[in-house]
Design a protein around this nucleic acid. Structure first.
Lengths: 238, 238
DNA sequence: TATTACTGCGAACATCGATCGCAGTAATAG
DNA sequence: CTATTACTGCGATCGATGTTCGCAGTAATA
């Protein structure tokens, strides 16, 4: 218990996973690493969704007991931190910037969306105010570099990046919903919708629905992610 | 077990809460209503967050046992449906449309954001492909009416509305995060951020952070929700 | 060599969503 | 009027979850 600064006896400062040392200085070497744990969790989530990522299942995938994981993590939430940052590292940030903020952010967004499509459980991760690890930090720095040529205030830059992420998840969700086979829930919702539309009290919803069904029959022109994003970005950075 | 249509023995079609009749035709009258249950759940969530909305706590607030709730709901998820639609009903849709899609959607967005500020737990509700009850339907119809004057395709209209909702939640989250007193997690994240910025390897992040801190000291010019939204909407509907 | 600080983990706790089955009740059928 | 049927309320209980405690073993330090 190394006190520091104040003499306050209960001054335990909160610390993220990223700051905490990966292993202590004294005892035996840990048998596993955080990266291994994160990898196991990601693998599980990829295969069976985020619900499958319980302390027990992750532990058993690592051939150990649930309690052991708490030597590496304080929380299940920290496990989600690890997973999130792990896949954030999949985005290639070595691509040189062109100098055009709109185009640069565009390719960044496309890469981010690809990650979301590869790891659908990302959409199920509870949105904290911030979930930023080392890789997330790099991502943010890269986005800020892309925005450097603009005249935006720092606040506006952050706002733009946040908005960009919102759009990425939005479109990723749309694409994934169309791809996955409809769940029981989805079928029920759809049935309710067409039923409600049939009552005549929501004519415009009915029309939109009919159109949607028609375009489903056709080879689906693929929602235009890039042009829409470009329009929004042009509007925000100009 | 009234068979209908096919002779398929296991053809139970999935049904939403909204379609299922509120009470059966035979037995005693239910002692509670779905609206009451939803109200109790909303009250609980308003006071102590969505985590407090467990079947047990809701039941005990209604002076009954957890099992009883399952006479009204099939799932906890359906309880979330009820809650969501209940607060969706708080948006005033009687306001006449001006005919200008951008301005009309703007006031709708502002009202929606107010609901989110009043019920912060809305941001914690797991995002399903669709969570649309009667009030949600009315909301959608209203938004489509606002978009009627545009030349957008039906698909684009729905896309625009979805995007609008994403922005609403985005800004609601930003406002709420600034309002609530920082949690342990948030403090840890913030500490990690300034620490990481101090290493010098993320100069732009550091700069944005410094600027953010400075504007926190000042009376905070309030992030410009409306103008930003207007720009995006103009870009999308033109 | 003794102490200290760590690691792995079995056992256990509280809480969660959900199910089962029974007692009671009201509408319907005969 | 009675029997049947279909419903309601709910106690008891199940399996799964996140998390904690404490002990045995281990390696670095004093």
């Amino acid at each position: 218990m190394t006190r520091r600064g104040t003499g306050d006896p209960a001054a335990e400062e909160p610390v993220t996973v990223w700051e905490r040392p990966e292993r202590g200085a004294r005892g035996p070497a840990p048998e596993r690493s955080r990266a291994q744990i994160a990898a196991a969790a990601v693998e599980l989530a990829d295969a069976e969704g985020l619900v499958a990522v319980s302390m027990r299942q992750v532990a058993s995938k690592l051939a150990t007991g649930p309690a052991s994981l708490y030597r590496y993590l304080a929380d299940r939430d920290e496990l989600l931190d690890l997973m999130t940052d792990a896949v954030a590292g999949e985005v290639d940030l070595t691509i040189p910037l062109s100098g055009d903020p709109v185009e640069d952010l565009l390719v960044l967004a496309v890469r981010s969306k690809e990650v979301h499509l590869r790891h659908p459980w990302l959409l199920d991760i509870p949105t904290e105010p911030l979930r930023l690890g080392p890789n997330g930090l790099d991502h943010l720095e890269y986005a800020l570099r892309a925005l450097a040529p603009t005249a935006l205030s720092e606040q506006s830059k952050l706002q733009t990046i946040g908005l960009l992420n919102a759009l990425v998840t939005q479109f990723a969700r749309a694409e994934l919903d169309g791809r996955r086979s409809p769940t029981t829930r989805r079928k029920a919702q759809a049935a309710y919708l067409i039923k409600a539309a049939a009552t005549g009290r929501h004519p415009l919803v009915a029309q939109a629905l009919a159109d949607q069904a028609a375009s489903d029959a056709a080879p689906r022109p693929q929602t235009q992610f890039i042009p829409l994003l470009r329009r929004v970005l042009v509007g925000l950075t100009s």
